[in-house]
């Protein structure tokens, strides 16, 4: 399997653990990821608040740069994925916009035929295209005893993303059940993390983060699995400040789902970017897996 790979800006710095773990997992699963040469930032939501045509043209440059022999592109970041998908869909549905975007691309000597590549989410790739049988076959370290709370965030599962049930997604749940983990069912798994509100209106964002952390704690989750850099940043890096703000003592490790998948596939934790999260995830994972080993030996 060979896919064009669009890592996105966050995966280069703040969410390097996501990039590391995606590449490591892909290697074990024989998925070839070819990074789009000279890709640019997707603009997140920020261009859409200013100019729709600039927003979509900036995104379309990345689609246009995908090598002609590749039919699929994978973007692990929620915002990147949605932007690529939304732009491709808009170009397919709206001939006028398609013409305008291609005219803008033309100024850079580029062109993109709407619908030429399929924008694929990483979760879809792993859950559906790799699938249960292969994941189980490649599993080295079952995650038995580990209580995980899959957190889907918002954009990816909404109808535009079309990845899963928009209100009550299950694909990550299913995947970690295959891998032996104890998947907790908690009501806010597709609620918003606050997005960029952490930078605009902290009070509003902190309340959203608190709700998510509280629900994870109530369901006795050991850790929370993300699939979006923004979610991971808000829940992890802001956790201390949320604790101060609400006088709470949350200590919920927040990692990318590919990191834990990597553990199940027997990849060294260092290679998966563990240690970059602020609330450390290694101790709980190690101790649960040790408990499991002890039980197996007994």
């Amino acid at each position: 399997m060979k896919y064009a790979y669009y890592p996105g800006c966050s995966l280069e710095s703040g969410s390097a653990a996501y990039d590391l773990s995606v590449r490591a997992v892909a290697e074990v699963l024989n998925i070839e990821l070819e990074e789009i040469d000279d890709w640019n930032c997707c603009g997140a939501t920020e261009y859409f608040t200013q100019d729709e045509l600039v927003a979509t043209s900036v995104i379309a440059r990345n689609l246009a740069l995908i090598r002609p022999d590749l039919r699929d592109v994978v973007a692990p970041c929620a915002a990147c994925f949605l932007n690529l998908k939304k732009t491709d869909a808009l170009m397919q549905d709206d001939p006028a916009m398609n013409a305008k975007i291609n005219s803008a691309l033309g100024a850079g000597g580029l062109h993109y035929d709407a619908g030429r590549v399929r924008v694929c989410h990483l979760l879809e790739l792993l859950h559906t295209e790799v699938g249960e049988a292969t994941l189980k076959e490649k599993m080295v370290q079952p995650l038995t005893g580990l209580r995980v709370a899959p957190y889907y965030g918002c954009q990816v599962v909404r109808p535009l993303g079309g990845l899963d049930n928009p209100e009550y997604p299950m694909k990550m749940d299913e995947m970690f059940k295959w891998l032996g983990a104890d998947v907790v069912d908690y009501p806010v798994k597709a609620h918003c993390c606050g997005g960029h509100m952490t930078q605009i209106s902290e009070d509003a964002a902190f309340e959203l983060i608190r709700r998510l952390l509280q629900s994870a704690v109530d369901s006795k989750a050991d850790l929370l699995l993300c699939m979006c850099p923004m979610c991971q940043l808000n829940l992890d890096a802001y956790q201390g400040r949320v604790n101060n703000f609400f006088n709470k003592d949350f200590q919920v490790p927040i990692i990318f789902f590919t990191q834990l998948l990597g553990v199940a596939l027997g990849i060294d934790m260092q290679k998966l970017g563990f240690g970059k999260e602020i609330v450390g995830a290694e101790p709980i994972i190690q101790s649960r897996l040790a408990e499991q080993a002890a039980k197996a030996n007994a």
């Binding site: 045509l53 600039v54 900036v58 440059r61 100024a107």
Partner: peptide
């Protein structure tokens, strides 16, 4: 190249 695309998009506008 990116800037040329952005400038063109701004020029077409809307």
């Amino acid at each position: 190249q990116l800037q040329a695309i952005i400038n063109k998009a701004k020029e077409i506008g809307g």
